[in-house]
Structure formats: C-alpha cells, structure tokens
Amino acid sequence: MKTIITANGSDVNATLDPRFGRCEFFCILDEETGETEFIENKAKLQSSAAGTTAAETVIEQGVKKVISGDFGPKAKSLLDRFGIQMVILKDEGQIIANVINSITGK
C-alpha cells in the first residue's frame, strides 16, 4: 500500500509540511518495501484551489492514505470521495524518517 506524507524538503531528513495544499513536496512511501519517492507539489504556488490540485496528485498516485498537518474543505471532500484516508499529525517539525518509522513499525 502507498502512503503520501507532505514534506518540507525532498529527502527523509526533511520535516513534515503541515500545509496539505501548499506543501513543498509529497513523499510517496511504499509501506511494504519502505521505499520512498519525492515529487514536487505543483499546486503550492497556485493562486486558488491549491487543495484540490494537490488532492488530484494524490489520487493520480493511487495512494490509500495521506499524512499532513491540515486539510482544507475541498481537498477533504475530494479525497473522501476516492476513499483516501486522511491522517492529521499535530506534532510540527517531525522528521519524515520518524513518521515513516512509526508507520512501518521500525
């Protein structure tokens, strides 16, 4: 199963980006293999509907779960529609590697 974590940078030492629609990067995690891939969020500088466009990317990637700090109402309803689970992490400044470890249980 694939999970997306919103990240401030493009490697596992980056921190969790609390803004879903305007996060810098998406970290795509394959939960079985533990492999990660980072893609830039093309919506981050969009003047409007950033949440919807970011949700579009998530859906295109075929992930089942998204981890971020906050989801806007439009992103929420679109992700809901495709049965994608949203996980809100309140702990700011967490390193992506730690978030991954807590998911994969390492």
Binding site: S48, E56, K74, F82
Partner: peptide, 15 residues
C-alpha cells in the same frame, strides 16, 4: 483553477 480532471480515475468536475 475551477476545473478538476483526474484521468486515471476518470474524474472530471467544475467548481
């Protein structure tokens, strides 16, 4: 940015 189209899941809508 009013239109959302997601080809892999055949989703298209206008806000």
């Amino acid at each position: 940015n009013a239109i959302t189209v997601i080809p892999p899941v055949q989703y298209a809508s206008i806000a």
